[in-house]
């Protein structure tokens, strides 16, 4: 799977590991910044806001903005503050239930 991404790796290819994003399997460079790695393989948006449901993706890449949140092991975390490790299971953060006005 190579979805169209507007982010390109310019360096040498490094060692890859397999992670899951939702139901799809991704091959990402081991040890690299998770947000960057997801951008390269075309993951976008990363999440939807709990209020309006608007799509969001990485904005600051320095742990300040929280627009790159993903859910890992049931915890919503900033992808830009994580490194790619083998076997990560990543989900889009669950949004507020519809019954919750």
């Amino acid at each position: 799977m190579k979805p169209d991404s507007t982010f390109r790796e310019i360096g040498p290819q490094t060692d890859r590991v397999t992670v899951r994003f939702g139901s799809s399997e991704l091959s990402l460079p081991r040890g690299e910044n998770l947000a960057g790695a997801l951008l390269v393989v075309g993951v976008m948006p990363f999440r939807h806001t709990p209020l309006s449901g608007a799509p969001r993706g990485p904005f600051c890449m320095m742990g300040a903005c929280y627009d790159c949140l993903v859910e890992i092991d049931g915890i919503n975390r900033q992808a830009c503050m994580l490194q790619v490790t083998e076997g990560l299971q990543i989900e889009r953060p669950s949004i507020k239930g519809a019954g919750n006005a």
Partner: peptide, 18 residues
């Protein structure tokens, strides 16, 4: 903000409308 988790409030915790 979390999906609906708590139905009624208590002195310990409540889920706010947001």
């Amino acid at each position: 903000k979390l999906p609906k988790l708590i139905n009624r409030p208590s002195l310990i915790a409540r889920q706010v409308d947001e």
